[in-house]
Design a protein around this nucleic acid. Structure first.
Length: 839
RNA sequence: GGGCGAUUAGCUCAGUUGGUUAGAGUGCUUGCCUUACAAGCAGGAUGUCAUAGGUUCGAGUCCUAUAUCGCCCACCA
């Protein structure tokens, strides 16, 4: 027997271990159809946050649902080495011990990274267990494991051979703190206060100067031209002449280039090809020299003359001062402009000329867009609007900078000897070859996740059976980083989409709608919430409160009310279990009206719930199942069942309905449903998670009884409302013109029934089939008189409106017939009601 | 500059292909310790569905503008 109170802590304790011991999460039953999901591997950088809890709960719901529907389910777990993020954490950790990574050396540092990784994998495992995730741990992978390394090398080599990976000197985003290149996607643009410095670039041999505005004056050491628009009447005659570069004193040409926008600023742009992507392009067109002025750590290099070694920002300050002294500074215009920052280190990113590896995107991206036009092979986004995001990005994206000047990651499979480059799976034979020191962007390996984790490039059984995967679940914030890249790599290398469905969820925000972040201190630890309310409540709350794709404002009050819902389920189960001990087998025969009614409602529920489960609309699942359990099952059926509780048919119905409820809730709240299921005297499986999902059964639809009990409930409600609203004292008597046994019992009318009219205050109560007159002694107060007046007024208005509608020939002829009939019926009812009030 | 989303009860959110009295939870309120549950039961009140037009017999829902908030992308010398 269940305890008197729902105790999530007690229920969830040790249950996960038991599931593991039974190997319920493991895939491999080849008699069934396969269904697969790969987990978005969390970074091994820290603990899981609420977003992870949401994301993984969604996946667990899908996988448990499919498992119960009879699929052989693989939910493949794993973690991501998170190159730059983890390296930054480990660097910080060893720094506390007073060590820097260069002292440790590459090998020693990687050892530290693996140590860190193991620690965090443990934390993640514990948290997955707390959440109750039914991942198949026997298939767990890591983005930096042997198999992934093989796949990564294979892909790199292939793309290189096809000319889709190349090495080139380009302007990339440089993080001076992590001292590595970044991809465009790893740069976060933020609006920060800055300034436009207006400088004088004197024209050679004259007293005239060009006014040049720049936000980064310290780059002037790398200037190799100033550009004006060739159509700009103000300056076009100057093209071909030279200006004197301030401070440096050397001559640089004035060139004409479309890049200079006559309407922007002064219309004159200084050109620094090594430190600006646009200037780089200008430099190419005009064959300009590229002069770097910065070191990797953001200090000024030897080209910065007297400023060598200074940090870029102090250099800027001093330089402006010096320019001012020399009369070369015209003005400083304070502005707010958006400046790129490193996603991980938050350092201001420096556009920087550098030799890096790139993935050429045109062809790969085009294929994604093409594939999305193929109905049978596209990735189906839920909600569909996110497809546009992928298509837009894939239609206009730059080459992907994939090399990182880090140690933690997949080392680039390229070897150099003098001017020779060798790219291959393994090191080339012969002496003198040196492997590229850099590693790959972490997303390069994550992009292969859905197939590389299954053994690809080998044609393993796992790969053949479970790839392509069925569904991927992730947040909209990583569509660019991950979903797009998985899609193009999958199409390129397997000729298949990586997943059939892509369920997109939003971000978790705090109650005020702000992003949860460390700096705001508004983060909520999912483990704290599990401790307070249980994993079941947290999962149900997270996955059912918003529509797909929407952000979620975390509201602890609502989580609390979810706990109440589970408590309700618990108590309903208690009631059932207390009364069905004698049931040895479920027999649904000789049922009474109420039994038939709940079975009918149950089957409607099963049908709708299944429909919405298939569509991943879990908020709609909640709306249906919540009201079925609370309103239909608890408030009405259990109350009615109390009158026939000794009847085995009612017992069977109670048990059967509860079993179906538990099964429908199981994907959402695995712990409590498993615990209650264990107590059922009759069950169809050794464990609820391997039991079969309820199926809609037409034979359990009893239309007539459904209407009858619906009407009975309607009548009971009307009766209670009448009593309450009219303040009718408990001594009332009732003449039941037409009623039924349930009405008498539910309303406890037995002692109050009379069979003749009385000449005292009375109220008529009715529903479609039933009618009663309530008699009681009461003087009507003024308030009640006023209320009555108001009701009459409202009814009259409503009747007038409805008559208008029904007199409208357009409506009568064009609207569906049953709708018109319904309206007529409503009108009739209203008229009767009015007559009653006026009597 | 381009795109996307949101705007519905005090609060947090639903609202299917348009169907005529717009829902839930919470909060508020009235009465109940009715032996599954007071973390509950039985009732009640609360909305110009952001604004303005339009289409339609009928609009929260479709169309066109506008406003406010948020997000993404691009640009920013």
């Amino acid at each position: 027997m269940l305890d008197t109170k729902y105790n999530h802590e007690l229920i969830e304790k040790n249950r996960y271990e038991s599931w593991l011991n039974h190997h319920y999460f493991e895939c491999g039953d080849t008699t069934k159809k396969p269904y697969s999901i790969v987990i978005p591997p969390p970074n091994v950088t820290g603990k899981l946050h609420l977003g992870h809890a949401w994301d993984t709960a969604l996946q667990d719901i899908i996988i448990r649902f499919k498992r119960m529907q009879g699929y052989d389910c693989l939910w493949l777990p794993g973690t991501d080495h998170a190159a730059i993020a983890t390296e930054a954490k480990v660097v910080a950790r060893i720094k506390e011990a007073g060590i820097n990574k260069y002292e440790l050396g590459r090998e020693g540092f990687l050892k530290e990274c693996f140590k860190w990784t193991d620690e965090h994998k443990n934390i993640i495992h514990e948290q997955w267990a707390k959440l109750g995730l039914s991942v198949d741990l026997s298939k767990e992978r890591f983005t930096l494991d042997e198999g992934m390394a093989k796949a990564v090398r294979y892909v790199f080599v292939k793309l290189y051979e096809e000319g889709l990976i190349y090495r080139g000197e380009k302007i990339i985003n440089w993080d001076p703190v992590a001292k590595t290149a970044l991809s465009n996607e790893e740069v976060i643009y933020k609006d920060v206060p800055g300034a436009f410095y207006h400088l004088k670039y004197y024209i050679e041999g004259t007293e005239d100067y060009l006014e040049v505005a720049t936000t980064r004056p310290e780059t002037l050491f790398g200037d190799t031209a100033v550009a004006v628009n060739p159509d700009d009447e103000r300056y076009k005659d100057l093209i071909g002449k030279n200006v004197i570069l301030p401070i440096v004193g050397k001559l640089i040409p004035i060139i004409g280039d479309e890049h200079a926008d006559p309407k922007f600023g002064t219309g004159v742009v200084k050109i620094t090809p090594a430190h600006d992507p646009n200037d780089f392009e200008v430099g190419l067109r005009h064959n300009l020299e590229r002069i770097k002025v910065l070191n990797e750590d953001g200090t000024m290099n030897e080209n910065a003359m007297g400023y060598v070694g200074m940090d870029r920002f102090s250099c800027r300050e001093k330089l402006i001062n010096d320019l001012n002294v020399q009369g070369l500074l015209i003005k400083i215009e304070e502005i707010t402009h958006s400046v790129g920052h490193s996603e991980r280190t938050d350092a201001m990113v420096e556009p920087y000329l550098s030799l890096q590896w790139f993935v050429k995107m045109d062809k790969l991206a085009k294929r994604v867009v093409e594939n999305q036009k193929d109905k049978d092979n596209k990735v189906n986004f839920i909600p569909p609007r996110f497809e546009k995001i992928m298509n837009n990005w894939m239609s206009d994206c730059h080459d992907w900078c994939i090399s990182r000047q880090l140690w933690w990651g997949h080392q680039i499979p390229a070897w150099y000897k003098d001017d020779e480059v060798y790219v291959g799976m393994d090191a080339p034979k012969g002496d003198g070859w040196k492997q590229d020191e850099d590693v790959l962007d972490t997303w390069f390996s994550s992009a292969l996740w859905p197939f590389a984790t299954m053994g690809w490039p080998d044609e393993t059984d796992l790969y053949k059976r479970y790839f392509p995967t069925n569904t991927l679940v992730t947040g909209y914030d990583i569509i660019f980083f991950w979903v797009c890249r998985m899609t193009f790599q999958s199409l390129e290398f397997t000729d298949k989409r990586p997943f059939e469905h892509c369920l997109i969820h939003g971000l978790i925000r705090d109650k005020l709608g702000r992003k949860m972040s460390k700096s705001l201190g508004n983060g909520v630890d999912p483990m704290d919430m599990i401790e307070k309310y249980g994993a079941d409540a947290l999962r149900y709350y997270l996955t059912t409160t918003t529509a797909p794709g929407m952000d979620l404002r975390f509201d602890e009050e609502r989580l609390k009310s979810t706990w109440n819902f589970i408590n309700k389920l618990w108590n309903a189960s208690r009631f059932v279990l207390m009364n069905i001990e004698s049931v040895k087998e479920i027999k649904l025969e000789n049922l009474n009206d109420a039994d038939k009614w709940i079975l009918t409602k149950l089957n409607h529920t099963i049908k709708d719930v299944t429909k919405y489960m298939e569509k991943f609309e879990f908020n709609n699942v909640n709306a249906i199942i919540y009201s079925f359990i609370w309103n239909d099952f608890c408030d009405n059926y259990i109350e009615m069942a109390k009158f026939s509780i000794d009847d085995n048919n009612t017992k069977s119905t109670l048990l059967y309905t509860l079993t179906c409820i538990l099964k429908m809730l199981h994907p959402f709240m695995p712990y409590v449903t498993d615990a209650i299921y264990e107590y059922l005297p009759v069950k169809d499986a050794e464990n609820i998670m391997v039991s079969s999902y309820p199926v809609y059964d037409k034979k359990q639809i009893f239309k007539e009884e459904e209407l009858l009990i619906d009407d009975t409930i309607e009548f009971i409600k009307n009766f209670r409302t009448t009593i309450k609203e009219n303040n009718i004292s408990k001594t009332y008597q009732v003449k039941l013109n037409s009623g039924n046994d349930l009405i008498i019992k539910m309303l406890k009318l037995k002692e109050k029934l009379i069979d003749k009219d009385l000449d005292i205050t009375k109220f008529k109560v009715n529903s479609k089939n039933y009618e009663a007159v309530i008699y009681y002694e009461k003087v009507v107060s003024k308030e009640e008189e006023a209320l009555k007046e108001k009701q009459i007024e409202e009814l009259k208005n409503s009747i007038k409106k409805r008559e208008g509608l029904l007199n409208n020939q357009n409506f009568v002829s064009k609207a569906p017939k049953d709708l018109v009939a319904k309206e007529q019926e409503k009108l009739q009812n209203e008229k009767e009601e009015l007559a009653k009030l006026l009597s």
